[in-house]
Amino acid sequence: MYQALDHGRIQTEALQQIWVKTLLADLPAAEPLWISVNATSIARPDAHTSQARGIIHVSNLPRAAKPISVGWQFSTMMLLPEAASSWVGILDQQRIPTAQTAIEVAIAQLQALIPLLQRPAILLADRWYATSAFLRACQHLGIQVLIRLKSNRRLYRRSGN
C-alpha cells in the first residue's frame, strides 16, 4: 500500500470534472452561477523546513508590530449558495507559488473551470482583482464580473473617441 501511495498519481482534471458536476447537479441549468475567487494567506513563520514560503500580509495579529509574516497563499474558487450562508462549494483551490501572483493563478483557475460549468457565470471578486489582465481574461472567457473597489479608487474615461 505504501508503494502504491508513493508511486500513485491523482488525476486532478478528472477529479475536478466529477466534483464540479456533483456540485452543480441540483442547480437549475438555465440560471447563471454565482462564483467567487479569493486569495487566503496562511502564516507559517516557524516552519523553516517548509518549501516555497513567501512574504504574506497577515492582518489583525495581536503581537505583530508589522502586518507581514512568512507563509503560503492559496487561491480558492467557490460556488456561492443561493441563500445567504457561510458554507460554499469549493470548485478549485490552488497554492499560489512565490513566482506567481494571485491574479495569474486565478486566471489559470478560471480557464480550467469555466468549460466545466457549461453555463453562464457571474464572478465576485475583491478589490485587488480589479486589474486589466484579470478583467481581459474574464471578458475572453465570457464571465460577468462584479468587483468591489476601494473607496478612493478613481476611474477615468478613455481619452479620444
Rank of each mutant, 00 (worst) to 15 (best):
V20D: 00
N38T: 12
R95H: 08
M77A: 15
A64S: 13
R136G: 03
Q109A: 04
R63Q: 14
A102R: 04
P67Y: 12
G142P: 01
G142F: 07
V37E: 05
R153M: 12
A43E: 12
V20S: 04
A137R: 06
L149S: 07
P45K: 04
Q139R: 15
E104Q: 15
A125P: 01
K150G: 13
C138W: 04
A106Y: 01
S85Y: 10
A39Q: 09
Q111H: 05
N38I: 03
A102N: 08
T49K: 12
T98I: 12
I18W: 09
S75G: 00
E104T: 04
W34Y: 10
L135D: 03
A133I: 03
T101I: 10
W19I: 07
S36Q: 01
I35S: 06
Q73A: 09
I143M: 08
A121D: 00
A121N: 00
I56E: 01
T76D: 02
D46C: 03
T76N: 06
Q139T: 05
H57R: 13
K66A: 14
L141N: 04
W87H: 04
Y129H: 06
S59E: 14
L33F: 03
S50T: 13
M78W: 00
I18E: 02
D26T: 10
A83V: 10
W19H: 15
R136A: 14
T76P: 04
I103R: 03
F74T: 07
I90N: 06
A121G: 01
L146H: 12
A30Q: 08
A84S: 01
A52M: 10
W72Q: 03
A25W: 08
H48V: 05
L91K: 06
E104R: 03
A130P: 06
A108T: 10
G71I: 07
W72I: 05
A108F: 02
V105H: 01
P81A: 09
I42A: 11
H57G: 01
A39V: 13
A47D: 14
I68V: 12
V105I: 03
A43K: 05
P67G: 12
N152Q: 08
P62D: 07
S41W: 01
S85L: 11
A121Y: 01
K66E: 13
V70H: 08
T131P: 08
S86I: 06
D26P: 00
D126M: 04
P28N: 08
R53W: 08
R95M: 13
Q51C: 06
V145T: 15
A65R: 15
R148F: 06
K21I: 00
Q73V: 13
P67S: 10
A52E: 14
C138H: 08
W128V: 02
L117I: 04
Q17N: 08
A99D: 11
R127D: 13
K150F: 11
E31Q: 15
L117G: 07
I55K: 12
P32Y: 11
A102D: 04
L149I: 05
S151T: 11
A39T: 12
I103M: 04
L146G: 05
